[in-house]
């Protein structure tokens, strides 16, 4: 009986602790970013897993490190990757269906040359499913052209 009373008094103290935590949060600065007027600081996106992108080669930023070994295609649980080998080792088609991707990183881990990585594209939108099927080779070339300008 005495123990039950004491437990309940301790419980009341825990209620006051809870109230003090929410009161502190009530007056602390907000975490929300009002998107169209402000954007998230790019540094805080370094751990964000956006859609996949190809890592540029060390000597030529328009070229991929991909050797068309199909390890990523076999590793992918959602079958969202298509890699077609051309003359030599370099791929000629590299499409990535983002609608099927679960961002599990099996492809990134299976790649022997480190040619795949997650991008930090937070603000990606599309109005149709077809726009979600990305051609990563042309994206890589576009990024290189933007970087060279």
């Amino acid at each position: 009986m005495i123990r039950a009373v004491w437990d309940n008094i301790k419980g009341l103290y825990s209620l006051i602790v809870g109230l003090s935590i929410t009161a502190r949060f009530l007056f602390s600065p907000q975490k929300t970013v009002h998107y169209p007027r402000k954007v998230v600081d790019p540094e805080s996106l370094s751990s964000f897993r956006g859609p996949l992108e190809l890592t540029p080669a060390a000597d030529n930023s328009a070229q991929s490190r991909c050797i068309s070994c199909q390890a990523c295609v076999r590793a992918c649980p959602g079958h969202c990757l298509t890699v077609v080998k051309g003359q030599g080792k370099a791929p000629i088609v590299w499409t990535y269906n983002f609608t099927l991707c679960c961002l599990c990183a099996a492809c990134v881990e299976s790649c022997p040359t480190g040619a795949l990585r997650f991008s930090h594209k937070v603000y990606m939108v599309a109005s149709s499913r077809q726009e979600m099927v990305l051609d990563l080779l042309s994206d890589l070339e576009k990024n290189a052209a933007v970087a060279n300008d």
Binding site: T22, F25, L26, F27, S28, P29, Q30, K31, T32, H34
Partner: peptide, 13 residues
Amino acid sequence: KMAGFIQRRPGPY
């Protein structure tokens, strides 16, 4: 508004 502030978001804005 109070729900928002307690959860560190702006509430209706």
